[in-house]
Each structure stands twice: as structure tokens, then as C-alpha cells.
Design a protein around this nucleic acid. Structure first.
Length: 592
RNA sequence: GGUCGCGUAGCUCAGCUGGAUAGAGCAUCUGCCUUCUAAGCAGACGGUCGAAGGUUCGAAUCCUUCCGCGAUCACCA
């Protein structure tokens, strides 16, 4: 990066000397592989300021640079592109400056401002599925990336532990459960509760069918099915604090939490603090009343409170019902404010929520801004596309979901069968092997999901297993394992300091360039909230390394200086892979 | 209908603030394991970047219109 800054100065200087013109900016790009050079200056934009032939101008600037800049060894011009060759010593200096740096690429100093990242936020009436996996991986990874970019981060989730849907599974368990528990059934708690959520839906549909049979119109039947009325009654009791209902609610939610904990642990995600909707669902009403007085909201004849966003190109949005109760938006306003009260250093929040709620968050952010909160400028909706199956959308009630626990297990099994086929693990204990299959299986799954732009929809076909070759997690893990193997064999890993007079192999230079890009990639990923940038960077690095590995002998090198450098370089590549994958929440194995 | 997002090779995806002949992986085909892990490397095949206009020295990228897919526009959460 500093090289580019230096060169910018020098090019401006050159143009000034040669043509007596001040250039505002200089445009760079990496040199295409088919030309000689490391960095390229694009001459075309200069033609606005300097009239003349681009090839001639490029050539003259090039000559100036060779003469006046130490790092520039030679130049060539193709059309309007000035390709600059940088001295090997520049790259070796760079290597020496970072060789011993731990967590290279991460910003070490932490800013005073914190950002809260919300993700996962499940309902407590059913187990997690593939959609939640995408949410969890994205949220966790973005949180880690923000940390690496120097931010203080709080990871949180809001657990949707109340409402009619929770009562549905409670009611169904009461009616059909016969006292079944996770212990008695051997089912994971969240799966047990999910089973009754499905059971409710089944009973509900049956009752509708019966009613329609006996002449009730369908719409009426849907509203009046006895089991639904019972669930609504249960919700009223819950809100009134009915002891029996609350006890049941606590018991069944406890089962779900136990189940979620296992899934989260398996996925490798965690949270710093938790919010429960049962605590926050009443928040926000005071703020709305206050905003009403300040004229930010307005009241309709029936007493409901609204905000007019037509000036912003949106429409009117309700924030309080006519009976004075809260809507979803009210809660979200209240919860956001509550969070800043709880953690006063917060100056920004990231909400990891599917793109079906784009509109909701647009409105929420606008309202918070209008209410005048300074942190409202720093809100970001980490919106991601749905994960669809070939059969269409996943629906828990209809059982057409890819269950999170099943999928994780599945990935581990695939990793196991591939590993056994390859049979490279002699000497590993059963426990170590199991751990490795998990690392690889999860690596495949996480990389598969994180490498694509969050905005895009993912079509997941359970019939076709996730790849383990090519642009995949295991490919990158494999490269890491290879490097560790070399380091084990290079018994005396020499000093990390490298002689800067070494002549670099083309592949070594490419690797150094790629390593140099890591810090800015982390920054870019943080700015864009995009783990995909980290994934793609890592893939490029690893491809470069494998090509190097194939062409250049490391341990077989007879020149000690060169051999030491190659070992050190490999070590550094391994460290960057590990750092990058840590940002994606993916582990790397010593062997595989 | 309004708003937002997406549309790049048979499939899955990259392509930074506009730049040189649009890049990977999978799949298909060819080579490379008595030498550091072949979950690898090297190569072949494969494209009117949804369509048409426009801006520019220069467009997959920016603007307009249209087409296709999806989401959203509830006193639901």
C-alpha cells in the first residue's frame, strides 16, 4: 500500500518535471499476468491533463521512475499501460517486516466505539435449519471481521420466546405429549418441541377440514378452529402471568435452549449477551409517546399512531395500535434504545436478518434517525438471500427443511468417508480422527455458504453433496496441512530474518504480493460486511501457494538461504490462512 | 401496481473506486505420484456478461427503458 503511495508521489513528480502539469491522481492496477511487471500505471486518465501520445508519455514517465525510484528496476509500456517491475529487495523487506508479526492483517489497537452484532435470533418453537446456519455463519463471521478491523464488538441475539407460535407447540405438547421429555424420548430438546409444533399444525388443519366439511366457509374455519382458539387463550394467560402456563413455557423453552446450545457449540458460534423478547416486547411505547409529542409521529382518528415517510419515498407506517399495544416495529425501536442504555459505548449495530425484512429495517433505521439518536447513523442491516431447496422454500410446519443438526452430521460423515478412502491418518487416535472429520466437514459447509455474496440466494440441493475439491474449505485446509507437514520436516526452522539480496522466484514474488494484500482485504471485508471477500482472498492465496509448491522445491533446495526463506514463506502463508479462516469461523487441521 | 434485490460458461460462483484478449471451481477430455501430503499441479473444451439504447478514449461495471426470477408493500411476528 505504501508502495503505491510512494509511486503516486513519484509519478506526479515525474509529470511535473516532464510536462509542468499537476496531476490530481494516479490510477494503478495490478499488472496482468501476461505482461512483465508488478504494478501498472494507467496512462489514459492523464491525457486530460497532458496532451500527447499515451505510449510516449508512459515511456517517459517510466524512464523517470527507473532513474529516481530505488524500488523500480525497469518499466515497459503496452498501449496506454505503464508496467513497472519492482525490485525483489522491496518484497523481501516487506517479508522481514511482517515475518514475526502475530495476527498479521488484524488491527491491534481497539477503537473506543463498539458495535453490536445481532444474529441467529430464532423462535423457540422449533429446531434450527439451514437458513439459520447461513444467518449464524454470516453474523459470527462479520463480528469477527469487525473485531479484526479494530472495532470492539458485542455479539448478541434476540430470542423470540413469546407469542402465538410458542403457545402452539406448548398446547400440542399438553394435548398429545403424554408427559414426554427430552430424557424420556431421547430427543434433543429443540427437536422435541419442534415435533409438537408440527403436531399442532396437523391437528389445526384437520379441524379446518372438518369444519369445512360441515359447511363452514374456509376463512371462517381458519379463524375458529378450536385448537387455534385454545392457543390464543393460552397466549392471553401467558401475558396475564398465569402460573401454570408460565411454568410450562419455562420448562419447554429450557428444553429448546439446551438443544440450541448444542447446535451453536457444534457450529462454533457464540454470543456475548442475550436479549429475550419476553423481556423486551413491552419496550418502545414510551418512546413512541414521546415522539408523538415532539411531532415525529401522528395520531389517527382511531387512536393508532403512525409515522409519515412519504417524503423519503416510503409510505405511512404504524408504530402503535389503536388499543395502545405495540407492533413489531415498536419493540425494535425500544430494544435498540435499550441496548445502547445497557452498553453505552455502542455506536452502531448490525442486524443479521434475511432480505425479506429489508423494508422493515429501512423504516426502523429512518425512525431512529428521526428520533435523533446519534448512533442511528451507524446501523446496518446485514441482509442475506434465502436458502432455497430445489423444491422451493423451506417450511418448518410442513417439514420441508434441512435440519441444522442433520446437515452438520452429514458433512462430518462425508468428511469421514473421504478421509478413510485416502487413508493418510495412521497414528491418529479415534478421538483425533473424529475431531478432524468435524473440522473438515464443517469447513466445507461454512466455506460453501460464506464464499457467496450475502445478497444472493443460495440454492441448496441436499441430493448433491457439498464439494470437497476445488474452491472449497477442505481444499484450503488441505493446503494448510501440507504446509504444517513441511514445517514438521524442516526440523530446524531457521531464523525468520531473510537476506534481502536473494533473487526471488516468480512464484515467490506472487505469493509475497498476495500476502501483502491481506490487511487491506480485512479492512475491505469489514467495510462491506462481507466474509465472501475473505473467502475469495484465501482461495487466491492458496492457489498461488499450491502452484509454488508444485514448481519449487522447498526442503530439497540446496542453498540454505533460499531454503530457509521458502520455509519461512510457507510458514507465513500458513499463518495467513489460519488468520483468514478464523474470520470465517473455520478451523485448520495439522494433518489431513 | 409501487419499492428493493438478483440475472456473467451446461452447473455453482469471482470480477475492487469504469481500463489491456471477461476469471475460478464442478462437470467432460489430456498429461503429472520411486522426490516436501494427487482433497494437489499443468493444460484443453466451454461466454452476443438477460435485451436494447445512452455517457466515455474505454462499459459486465455508470444512466434510461424493457424482459425474467425473488422479496416486500398487514392494527402478523
Amino acid at each position: 500500500m505504501s508502495l503505491q503511495n510512494d509511486l503516486t508521489q513519484k509519478v506526479i513528480e515525474a509529470v511535473k518535471q516532464l510536462y509542468q502539469v499537476d496531476l490530481p491522481t494516479v490510477e494503478f492496477q495490478p499488472t496482468r499476468k501476461d505482461f512483465e511487471g508488478d504494478i501498472t500505471v494507467v496512462v489514459f486518465p492523464m491525457l486530460r491533463h497532458v496532451k500527447g501520445n499515451p505510449v510516449q508519455i508512459g515511456t517517459q514517465i517510466g524512464e523517470y521512475l527507473v532513474e529516481h525510484v530505488d524500488e523500480v528496476s525497469k518499466c515497459n509500456v503496452v498501449q496506454g499501460f505503464l508496467n513497472i517491475v519492482i525490485e525483489d529487495s522491496y518484497y523481501l523487506d516487506f517479508f522481514n517486516s511482517v515475518a514475526d508479526e502475530t495476527d498479521f492483517g488484524y488491527v491491534k489497537s481497539q477503537s473506543n466505539d463498539a458495535v453490536m452484532v445481532e444474529y441467529s435470533s430464532p423462535n423457540t418453537n422449533k429446531p434450527l435449519h439451514l437458513g439459520h446456519i447461513r444467518n449464524n455463519l454470516l453474523g459470527y463471521s462479520v463480528a469477527e471481521i469487525l473485531k479484526a478491523s479494530g472495532k470492539k464488538v458485542y455479539k448478541t441475539q434476540i430470542i423470540n420466546d413469546r407469542g402465538i407460535h410458542i403457545c402452539k407447540s406448548m398446547l400440542a405438547w399438553q394435548k398429545f405429549g403424554k408427559g414426554e421429555t427430552p430424557e424420556s424420548s431421547g430427543l434433543k430438546g429443540d427437536h422435541l418441541v419442534g415435533k409438537y409444533y408440527v403436531a399442532f399444525d396437523k391437528a389445526y388443519k384437520e379441524q379446518i377440514a372438518e369444519l369445512v366439511e360441515s359447511g363452514t366457509p374456509k376463512e371462517k374455519a381458519e379463524k375458529e378452529a378450536p385448537i387455534l382458539l385454545e392457543a390464543q387463550e393460552m397466549l392471553r394467560k401467558w401475558e396475564a402471568g398465569d402460573e401454570e402456563v408460565v411454568a410450562l413455557w419455562k420448562k419447554m423453552n429450557g428444553w429448546v435452549y439446551d438443544g440450541f446450545d448444542i447446535t451453536y457449540k457444534n457450529l462454533g458460534v457464540d454470543f456475548d449477551t442475550l436479549y429475550y423478547e419476553s423481556d423486551t416486547y413491552l419496550l418502545g411505547r414510551d418512546v413512541v409517546k414521546d415522539g408523538l409529542e415532539r411531532g415525529i409521529f401522528f395520531k389517527k382518528e382511531d387512536g393508532s399512531v403512525w409515522i409519515d415517510l412519504t417524503e423519503e419515498g416510503l409510505d405511512e407506517k404504524i408504530v402503535l395500535r389503536s388499543d395502545g399495544t405495540a407492533v413489531y416495529m415498536t419493540q425494535d425501536i425500544g430494544t435498540a434504545i435499550q441496548r445502547v442504555t445497557d452498553f453505552p459505548d455502542i455506536n452502531g449495530m448490525v442486524y443479521t436478518v434475511g432480505n425479506e425484512q429489508d423494508y422493515h429495517f429501512k423504516v426502523l433505521f429512518l425512525i431512529l434517525k428521526k428520533l435523533g439518536y446519534s448512533w442511528a447513523e451507524q446501523l446496518y442491516h446485514l441482509s442475506y438471500g434465502m436458502v432455497d431447496l430445489p423444491s422451493g422454500k423451506m417450511k418448518s410446519r410442513e417439514g420441508t427443511v434441512v435440519d441444522a443438526d442433520d446437515l452438520i452430521k452429514n458433512m462430518e460423515d462425508t468428511a469421514e468417508s473421504i478421509s478413510q478412502e485416502l487413508g493418510k491418518l495412521e497414528g491418529y487416535s479415534e478421538e483425533e480422527k473424529k475431531q478432524l472429520y468435524r473440522t473438515i466437514g464443517l469447513g466445507a459447509l461454512k466455506y460453501y455458504i460464506l464464499k457467496v455474496d450475502p445478497k444472493k440466494r443460495i440454492l441448496f440441493n441436499p441430493e448433491e453433496s457439498v464439494d470437497f475439491q476445488g474452491n472449497t474449505g477442505p481444499f484450503i485446509q488441505y493446503t494448510y496441512a501440507r504446509i504444517q507437514s513441511i514445517l514438521r520436516k524442516a526440523d530446524n526452522v531457521g531464523s525468520s530474518a531473510v537476506e534481502t539480496s536473494l533473487e526471488l522466484h516468480e512464484k515467490e514474488k506472487e505469493l509475497l504480493k498476495q500476502i501483502q494484500l491481506f490487511p487491506e482485504t480485512v479492512q475491505l471485508a469489514a467495510e462491506n460486511y462481507s466474509p465472501a471477500l475473505i473467502a475469495n482472498y484465501t482461495y487466491d492465496l492458496v492457489k498461488e501457494f499450491n502452484s509454488f509448491y508444485q514448481q519449487v522445491s522447498i526442503l530439497g533446495e540446496t542453498d540454505d538461504q533460499k531454503k530457509n526463506f521458502r520455509v519461512q514463506l510457507s510458514k507465513k502463508v500458513g499463518e495467513v490462512i489460519q488468520s483468514a479462516f478464523r474470520l470465517l469461523g473455520i478451523d485448520v487441521p495439522e494433518r489431513m
